[in-house]
């Protein structure tokens, strides 16, 4: 694909419009919005983590409207079954004929799927999302169904320490491109949130993009060149999360049980490319890699007991790895 300077500029403009439109419904959280947009344009799934009431669901819904994509929401509960997510074959009779099985698609068959409070469902139901998230297909009764393009899952979860939650299996976590922490709003933001939502005034949202446009922007972003030193730095960064790696700093060796999978490296580069585009550049810089490392790796690094007991966070660990690599 031949990408010109104007194409890159269009991506920048479109993303700016998307962000501005979302900002009409979302108070503050600009960085969160930026990261979600990056993740969507990179073709990944997002795991949003935060306490209830921070606007996670609202953000996803707004995003669906702004992008003009079909949107479905699945509220994950402990009794939710996989078939409730992906759909099931049902017997259909019409005109006295013999009944035949017909696939009834589940709510997952949308462009944007909001898996709300995903960690409240059982692991079996959570795993129903695996194939859809990775291969973007669903197999039911021996038949594989393709998901609409673009397809991405935006899952929200409450912190694991809260009651009635099931930790996501590592394999499923790895399918999320980003894990984003939703911060609690500041005083001013909280005031604005209350002002906006407690009244009758409702901002009208405009559709500023489309599925095709998103696919084009995704392809454009993939053409952004990455210099060899930058690519090597990203790879060293990912390898440095492995305690047995030669690049691992002491902090990794001390506190990490497992490091990031190769999907982490892919996620870092993909996100770094988009970050460069949104920054108005035609190349990926070290700072893009560093920026992408936190959301792309924080759910892929698993601390050992010592790290957990000492209160080490994945973000602090990644920060120290970046410092160690220079």
């Amino acid at each position: 694909m031949d990408v010109s300077g104007s194409d890159v500029k269009n991506v920048m403009d479109t993303v700016a419009k998307i962000e501005n439109e979302i900002a009409k419904q979302m108070v503050g959280q600009r960085e969160l919005i930026r990261q979600v947009v990056i993740c969507i344009l990179a073709g990944g799934n997002v795991l949003l983590e935060g306490v209830p009431g921070l606007g996670k669901t609202r953000l996803v819904k707004t995003l669906g409207k702004v992008l003009g994509l079909s949107f479905s929401r699945i509220q994950f509960t402990p009794d939710l079954m996989p078939a409730d997510v992906v759909g099931t074959n049902i017997i259909v009779r019409s005109g006295g004929e013999e009944g035949m099985f017909k696939f009834q698609p589940g709510p997952i068959f949308s462009h944007i799927v909001l898996a709300d409070e995903i960690n409240r469902a059982t692991p079996k139901t959570q795993s129903a999302l695996l194939e859809a998230m990775q291969e973007q297909t669903v197999t039911v009764g021996g038949t594989t169904y393709k998901m609409p393009r673009p397809f991405f899952v935006l899952a929200t979860q409450n912190p694991i320490e809260m009651e009635g939650t099931y930790p996501l299996p590592e394999a499923q976590l790895d399918r999320f491109l980003f894990k984003l922490d939703v911060p609690f709003p500041s005083l001013e933001e909280l005031t604005d949130i209350v002002t906006m939502t407690a009244g009758n005034r409702e901002e009208e949202l405009q559709k500023v993009s489309s599925g095709e446009e998103i696919m084009i922007m995704r392809n454009i972003a993939r053409e952004i060149p990455v210099a060899k030193p930058v690519l090597e730095f990203a790879m060293r960064l990912v390898l440095a999360t492995h305690p047995e790696s030669e690049f691992a700093p002491p902090v990794t060796k001390k506190y990490v049980r497992f490091g990031s999978s190769p999907r982490g490296a892919q996620a870092v580069i993909a996100a770094a490319r988009l970050r460069a585009v949104l920054d108005g550049r035609y190349n990926v810089a070290f700072e893009d890699v560093k920026y992408a490392a936190y959301p792309a790796l924080r759910h892929r690094v698993f601390l050992n007991f010592e790290g957990q007991s000492e209160g080490i966070t994945a973000d602090s660990l990644i920060g120290e790895i970046i410092s160690a690599l220079g």
């Binding site: 210099a227 550049r281 190349n283 990926v284 810089a285």
Partner: peptide
């Protein structure tokens, strides 16, 4: 921001 090394 690695513009030059990429150009190179």
């Amino acid at each position: 921001k690695e513009r030059l090394i990429t150009a190179y």
